[in-house]
Amino acid sequence: MLVIYSFLITSAVIFGIGIYGFITRRNMLKMLMSAEVMFNGALLALLALSRASMVPAKGGILALIAISLAASEIGVMVSLAILIFRIKRTIDVYELRRHRG
């Protein structure tokens, strides 16, 4: 017998791992991937909670829109990282802060 809470706990653990990665990494792509891990955890929580609600289809639509926007965000961020790497030859955010301006 499965309960919704087990999905929510899984999503919380995935979200927490994403937060840990986002704080500790200094590579721009690693930070983006950690943010994507957080997004995956949040998406699982959204669908689990919408499954427990009276109208689960609305949660599904929110998830569809969120997945599409995440794909757009990945496109923008990776293109920016490529552009920054071409100009500065690094995607280390600490180094980029030093070379700003």
Partner: peptide, 20 residues
């Protein structure tokens, strides 16, 4: 990270009864 996981687990505790 542990604090966030514990906070989310505490917030969603009422869903412990909801069976899929």
């Amino acid at each position: 990270a542990i604090l966030v996981i514990a906070a989310i687990a505490a917030i969603f505790l009422p869903y412990n009864e909801v069976v899929l």
